[in-house]
Design a protein around this nucleic acid. Structure first.
Lengths: 204, 204
DNA sequence: TAGTCGATGGCACTGGGTGTCATGCGGTGC
DNA sequence: GCACCGCATGACACCCAGTGCCATCGACTA
């Protein structure tokens, strides 16, 4: 039966938005324009997205779920950073399938401060969620907070490098490199543990 | 001579804004209201502040200048994290003078996601600026980025604890504690360097 | 056939943010 | 002492993001 409405309104809005943002820029594109391009109205746009920025962040909830559940699923004996690393694993896999889309999206966000703000608060939520999951595993309060922050910093740094190159499959290696480098810089002048293995640096 | 305009328009606007935000909340306060309370108009408000949020972030430029110049001023032989620590020193001193104000401001920001987004992008700029200053000191690209991120993470964590208690002078100790804990969690299971000195933890 | 459900449209309204011009005091040059 | 200019502010119209409310009308159900 011809349904009354064309399906996947949210998806149509997202596609239209990305296309228009690429063509004209984020600021120069109005919500009414996006809605019209998707065969809908401004009012309907705001039924699907809390605001104009959110249209670029569909799926971030799933990302956070994956992130948190990976931490919860880590072996009981794993320490905080080991649990974080398993979350980095899962996220790297997820992103590998979406390299082209991620690059376009990253370009749009990089061009607009409003969107960067939204991106940053999503990352902060990832860090908080990770910290919460770690606390549930028995990690001490402050250690959990800082491990969450560290995990997100590594993710963010690796992500930034990942979108700048062609190969979708190196994300995990980039993460490893970032984490090794982080350990090195944080421990500089504090004994042998400071120096990352050359092999880890080479993988990135 | 009675000048034509009352002085310090920006200061009056900031004061009025904070008062109203405290009384009614950020969302429930309109820019026109703030301006009127300061004896000005909405149009003038936007001549001093790029948007409504920015009124709570006056002075963040000075903070960044202090932050960056502390890194630049660190001894030539200091490593990346040592330079970062000297910036943390300077910032801790600056904040010690403003504890009451910082607490009010933090409460307002904590109650509103829009404001948190703005706070996060300011912190991200601090991290970027630190990374840039470190690169100028000869620190490698990625190490600089990660050291900047780490410094901001420590600052942020310590700040959050600092506003929750009474003593304005413990910020540097809280930072030390956070940094020690960060080192511990990041190095867990990697040798003696992982365990922070008990003395450092006690200071926090 | 009547009635309900649910996604959408229509419309008016608030408030943030901007472009543009007008206003009028203080200082400057002559 | 007069003409002029600079500059902080006001006034006003306007655009667009975002919301509340009610209308619409096909699909499904009794």
């Amino acid at each position: 039966m011809m349904p009354r409405w064309k399906p996947d309104a949210a998806g149509r809005l997202t596609k239209a938005a990305i296309t228009l943002f690429e063509q004209q820029g984020y600021e120069a594109t109005t919500v009414a324009e996006i809605a019209e391009a998707a065969g809908l109205t401004k009012r309907t746009f705001f039924r699907y997205f809390a605001d104009k920025r959110e249209v670029l962040f569909m799926g971030s909830e799933e990302l956070q779920d994956l992130w948190v559940s990976s931490i919860r699923a880590a072996p009981d004996r794993a320490g905080a950073m080991e649990a974080i690393e398993s979350a980095l694993d899962a996220v790297a896999q997820l992103f590998a399938e979406r390299h082209p889309f991620a690059r376009v999206r990253a370009r749009i966000i990089a061009a607009n401060p409003e969107l960067q703000e939204r991106e940053l608060i999503k990352l902060a939520k990832l860090a908080d969620a990770a910290a919460g999951a770690l606390r549930d595993r028995g990690v001490a309060d402050r250690a959990a907070t800082l491990a969450g922050q560290t995990g997100v910093a590594v993710f963010h740094d690796a992500f930034a490098r990942w979108v700048q190159q062609e190969d979708p499959d190196v994300m995990r290696a980039l993460m490893d490199g970032s984490l090794a480098e982080l350990r090195a810089v944080v421990m500089e002048g504090r004994g042998r543990a400071a120096r990352p293995k050359a092999s880890a640096l080479r993988r990135a």
